[in-house]
């Protein structure tokens, strides 16, 4: 918000007349109307629905107050789902952003341009695939009877899980994480690489003249220079982790026995399979709490005065 006001002053380049105000409101109107109809209004309904107990097909609904929330916090499946969301969040930040950063550095400084284009194409390709297609493909990879992963493990004489990759309650969520990383690391790499390419070459040259090693250049020049890009990537990844649904739905449906459930799938099941719309809405409210809190924390972290406001928010 500080940044906004700063910008307000800077863009006062002409005194606005009343007609300009109307024009501006008219230009904003479609966005605001759509936002109101499809986001704000349903969101307020979610909050209201969370105070009721009713089913998809039931004709009436009963007011239950905060009962849904009390039940939710005592529901072990909710905590398993939350834990799984956190596993995906942490794993994604460490691997997708962390490894993406290393890859980007290699691409930025390390390899010739021709190869870099080809390699970048390969790394980024899974990102444009739908998660459903990725899920179906990987379900086959994990398949215990004809899957590639078991075959590969057998080939190098490593044991394969008795319960199957996706059937093992301790492995399933990590398998999903693995697939998510396969799909999105390239995405993070490209964002970070774009940030690195905007770093002025003089910085690198100066560092190299001072005799810095590649590793030192990476830690002392590259990373500080793209701090905000890194924070933006982390934010996208974190919020994305709470939006997880497609991969889990296709790979395990949250199973075995809720072991790989995430908040998204648990919400979906309650609403559309178990006929508990109110309970599902309570999960939605909690989910919203997490993502909004995350964004607020991020906004705080990014408040560096040297940059323009919008860019800092992303």
């Amino acid at each position: 918000m500080n940044n906004m006001s700063q910008n307000t002053i800077s863009s006062k380049h002409r005194s606005p007349g009343r007609s300009v105000h109307i024009a501006s409101y008219a230009m904003l109107a479609p966005a605001l109307v759509l936002f109101a109809i499809f986001i704000a209004y349903p969101l307020s309904n979610t909050v209201i629905s969370s105070l009721f107990e009713y089913g998809l097909t039931s004709p009436t609904r009963n007011f239950v107050g905060l009962q849904n929330f009390l039940e939710l916090f005592g529901d072990p499946v909710f905590w398993v789902s939350f834990r799984n969301n956190l596993i995906i969040l942490l794993g994604s930040v460490v691997f997708q952003v962390g490894f993406g950063l290393v890859l980007a550095a290699v691409f930025n400084r390390g390899i010739s341009r021709r190869w870099s284009t080809l390699a970048r194409t390969i790394v980024f390709a899974p990102m444009v695939m739908s998660s459903v297609a990725v899920g179906i493909l990987w379900q086959l990879v994990f398949n215990p009877s004809i899957g590639a992963l078991d075959a590969a493990m057998n080939f190098v004489r490593l044991p394969t899980p008795m319960l199957g990759w996706l059937g093992d309650p301790n492995l399933a969520i990590f398998c999903i994480l693995l697939v998510a990383c396969w799909q999105y690391t390239g995405f993070m790499m490209v964002i970070l690489l774009a940030g690195m390419q905007a770093v002025p070459n003089e910085l690198y040259e100066a560092a190299t003249l001072d005799g810095a090693t590649e590793a030192q250049v990476f830690f002392y020049v590259t990373i500080p220079a793209i701090r905000n890009v890194i924070i933006a990537s982390v934010l996208i990844t974190m919020i994305g982790s709470f939006k997880a649904f497609d991969l889990v739905y296709v790979l395990t449906l949250g199973g075995p026995a809720h072991a790989s459930e995430v908040l998204g799938t648990y919400l979906y099941k309650n609403a559309f399979n178990l006929n508990r719309m109110g309970y599902a809405s309570a999960i939605a409210v909690v989910l919203l709490g997490f993502t909004v809190t995350l964004s607020l924390i991020q906004l705080r972290l990014q408040a560096t005065p040297t940059r323009s406001p919008a860019k800092d928010v992303v």
């Binding site: 936002f35 499809f38 986001i39 209004y41 349903p42 969101l43 309904n45 979610t46 629905s49 919020i239 709470f242 939006k243 649904f245 908040l263 998204g264 919400l267 979906y268 609403a271 719309m277 599902a280 809405s281 939605a284 409210v285 989910l287 919203l288 993502t291 909004v292 995350l294 964004s295």
Partner: peptide, 12 residues
Amino acid sequence: GYAIPIHTVLVP
């Protein structure tokens, strides 16, 4: 709006 996952408005 970016921080609002689609899941949260699914039911309404």
